[in-house]
Amino acid sequence: MFDDALMALLDRLDLGPRDSLEPLSGGDIAAVYRLATDRGEVVLKRDDPERLAGEAEGLRALKAATTRLAVPEVWGEGDGWLVMEALTPARRTAAGERALGEGLRELHGVPASGEASHGWARDNACGATPQPNAPLDDGRAFQRERRLLPLARACHDRGLLDARLRERLEAVAQALEDWLPDASGRRVHGDLWSGNVLYTTRGPALIDPAVYRHYPEVDLAMLTLFGAPSEAFFEAYWNGAAPADWPRREALFQLYPLLNHLLLFGGAYRDAVARALTRVERGG
């Protein structure tokens, strides 16, 4: 299982393997392994080089933006392999959930500076789907042009979205300025479902990012869509009351991951797209 590219990368990083690769679960898109080396355990990921480069950049960006959350250090990458620090898992606790809320609040407090507010300097991927991040100053335009409309078009072209549902999605996208205030984009994880949150001996950790700058509710909506954050998490995150329009924002920012799942995994997600769309149309 040690191909020439991996052996060359390990040699460059001065990592001598002490055992065979141990496959890890949870890698729906990429192959993920744990490896014991003479400098300790590392995690290896094998995938498309461009996707891995985007992930490595995202991990570094998260690490630079938070002191409260653990983010695995990137040790090196190349030729379709990514080598990262291995984290030691621990039990999920109420204290860990509070720490996750506090850490995300810290992460989302990092504003854009000297750049267009929403987006990122390079495109990356959300799962196997290319994620366009060309920056825009207005968050409503970014959500419309970089997230909702491209995926609605892709799903329709594959026969996964009927014409009427696509028309409703486009109408919601065109009407965002009617209710969603513009705001400075904040650094977000971008693919924060529950499987990308680890509870470790160093506290809650974030893995597998698809980082860009946008409304911070992007991360919260993903957590509630594919997970069950506790009351302790939300108390720590909001540090007070949730915004009055949170239910509508939650539904809006769930549309993109739901459309992505529809595109990747098929028609089972169509009804969920329709339900989230109805919530946005009705104001939450």
Rank of each mutant, 00 (worst) to 15 (best):
M1A: 15
M1P: 15
D4H: 14
A5S: 12
M7I: 14
L10R: 01
R12Y: 12
D14A: 15
D14K: 14
D14H: 14
P17Y: 04
P17E: 07
D19I: 01
E22L: 12
P23C: 02
L24I: 01
S25F: 05
G26L: 07
G27M: 05
V43Q: 05
V43N: 10
D47Q: 09
D47G: 13
R51L: 12
L52I: 01
E55T: 03
A56E: 07
E57F: 08
L59Y: 08
L59N: 09
R60K: 13
K63W: 05
A65N: 13
R68L: 15
L69Q: 02
E73A: 15
V74T: 14
G76D: 09
G78T: 06
D79F: 04
M84N: 12
L87K: 05
T88K: 11
P89V: 04
A90T: 07
R92V: 05
G96R: 09
E97C: 06
G101Q: 01
E102G: 14
L104P: 04
V110G: 03
V110S: 10
G114D: 07
E115T: 12
S117C: 07
G119P: 08
G119N: 00
N124Y: 06
N124W: 08
A125P: 04
A125C: 10
C126T: 11
Q131E: 10
A134I: 05
P135A: 10
P135G: 08
D138P: 10
R140P: 04
Q143A: 14
L149A: 11
L151Y: 12
L151E: 08
L151T: 03
D157Y: 04
D157S: 14
R158I: 05
L161R: 12
A163C: 10
R166F: 03
R166I: 01
R168H: 08
L169F: 13
A183E: 15
S184Q: 13
G190F: 06
D191R: 12
G195R: 10
V197N: 01
V197W: 00
P204A: 07
L206Y: 02
V211M: 03
Y212H: 15
Y215W: 14
E217Y: 00
V218M: 12
D219R: 02
L220W: 03
L220P: 00
L223H: 05
L225K: 04
G227L: 01
G227K: 03
W238Y: 10
G240Q: 09
A242M: 07
W246T: 06
P247M: 11
E250G: 00
L252C: 03
Q254A: 09
P257V: 06
L259M: 14
N260H: 05
F265M: 06
G266D: 07
G266P: 02
G266A: 00
A268V: 10
A268C: 11
R270P: 05
A272D: 13
A272T: 12
R275T: 14
R275P: 10
R279V: 02
E281Q: 13
E281S: 11
R282G: 13
